[in-house]
Every structure is written in C-alpha cells, then in structure tokens.
Amino acid sequence: MNVALRVIPAALLGLTILASSLFPVSAQTGTIAVTAQLLDYQNGYVFLTTGDGFRVLPAVAIVDYKSGKLAGPPAPRQYARLTFDQTGTVLKIELSKAKLPPEGDLDAIRRRFAVALSTPVPNPDLGPTRVTSPCANVRPGKSVSLNVTVQVPPSTPLTDTVYMTTDQSGWNAQAYRMDRRDALHYRVQLKLLSGTVLHLLFDRGSMQSVQLGENGIEQDPYTICIGDEDAQTFTKTVYHWADQQAGASLPIPQTFPTPYNPAPFPNLPTPQPRPT
C-alpha cells in the first residue's frame, strides 16, 4: 500500500512532466501552439495538410502572423500557427503565406485533438511488402547529382556528338549534350530532384540517330528513379545507332541532294582522275 502511495504520485508527476514537454503549454493561459499548412477551413473546423480536422472556437481570432492584424478567412496552401486550448479547440489562427518555422509537436496534437468519426483502421497498402513503385521509398524534392555514362559502339563517327534525350525535356533529341570521356564513352552530369522518374535514351542529335537495341529493333526508354542520396550514377551501353545500317557499306546521303559517288573519297580534287 505504501509502495502504491509512493509510486502513483510519482507516475502522475512523470506523466505531467512528459506531457508538458510534448505540448508547449503557455504558462499563463494553458494553450498549446503548433505551426502547419492549411488544407481547409469550413463548418467550424480547420483542416491541416495531414488530413486532420480540428474544432474551431466560433469566435476564433484570425490574424496575420507578422502584423497581428485581423486577416481574411484561412485558405488552402496558407501556413498557420494554431493555438489550441486544453480541450483541443482552436482559439487563434495566425496566417502566413510564407512557410513558418516549426513549432509544437504536430503528431502529438493530431493524436490528441483531431476529430474523426471512424475508428482508425490499418492500411494494407502501406505494408512494406506491397510497395512496388521504384520511387516508393524515396524522400522527394532533394537536389541530386546524376552522372550518366554511356559506352558507344566503336563505329560511332569521331566527329559526332552524343546526346541524351528524356521525357523530362519532351524527348528533345538535343536536350542534354554529352561530353567525350574517352574513345568509347561519353558522360553528362545533371541535377534532378529526388523522386523523379526519368525515362531516357541516347542519340546523336536526332531521333533518326537514336540508339537501337542489341537486336537492331528500337530500344524502349530506360527508366531511372532519382533516389535521395547525394549523387547517383547511371551507366549504359549503346549497341547500334538507328542511322547506321547493319554492316553498312553503301553511301548514305548526308545532305540532300547527294551527289552519287561509289568511290570512298567524296572530295577528290578537280581534275579528278576518272577511270576510262
């Protein structure tokens, strides 16, 4: 009994300390403040982008965060500092168009005060075994350096430029010019946001000279998910170019009209030695 008398007050005290650390309660008014982004404000509720709704005092004070002056009704996208009373009712909404510094424990506020009719049910979609998207577990929005290296066929003309074309640039065949790295390789570096799913192919300046598969049939675009590490590398091999025939030997018109010339040197001087 004595033990219980000692433990229970101690536990209550501990819980009080823990609660006070979780919720920054104003010493004077007993209110709790938190900053968040707004989803909606209607019918006596304010909704946050977490999807949670909170009761609002009918006479709630809606003011501008910076000036403290009265402000219009809250709207989606706006940032706000919400002040709750001890029952979870929002007493004050301070609005801002700019992102506000984090304040309060939003998760704890949600668990304690959010209003929802139905009992929470686990979502089997969110189980780790069900996630199949290549970008499913990537934290989006981080700037990531992507280093792309491609090995080209030895028949690639020395004077040609190699490009990378992507769905990100509307499949513009000259969107990303690559730099020669050595006799068989080209590279390009670019910055992309993590979470981006990129489809890409390599070409020599137009889609008529886009890469083909090893079997000579057109190559389906590669897919890369930009992860959330600082840098990512992507290396591929081009086997053939679409404008280079298999075992090519016949002259192909480079410009139009093309003077037909079966001899290997198109620019022999004049007078040209002619076979007789």
């Binding site: 668990r111 929802a116 929470p120 996630v131």
Partner: peptide, 17 residues
C-alpha cells in the same frame, strides 16, 4: 458523434497497386 482521435499517419509512402 464521438470525437474519435484520428489515426496516426505513417511516414510518406506510396500505396501499392
């Protein structure tokens, strides 16, 4: 209606198809 606490939402993740 009772004011049922909302579920705690897990870390951002995409649901599987």
């Amino acid at each position: 209606a009772p004011a049922t606490p909302a579920p705690a939402t897990p870390a951002p993740a995409m649901p599987a198809p």
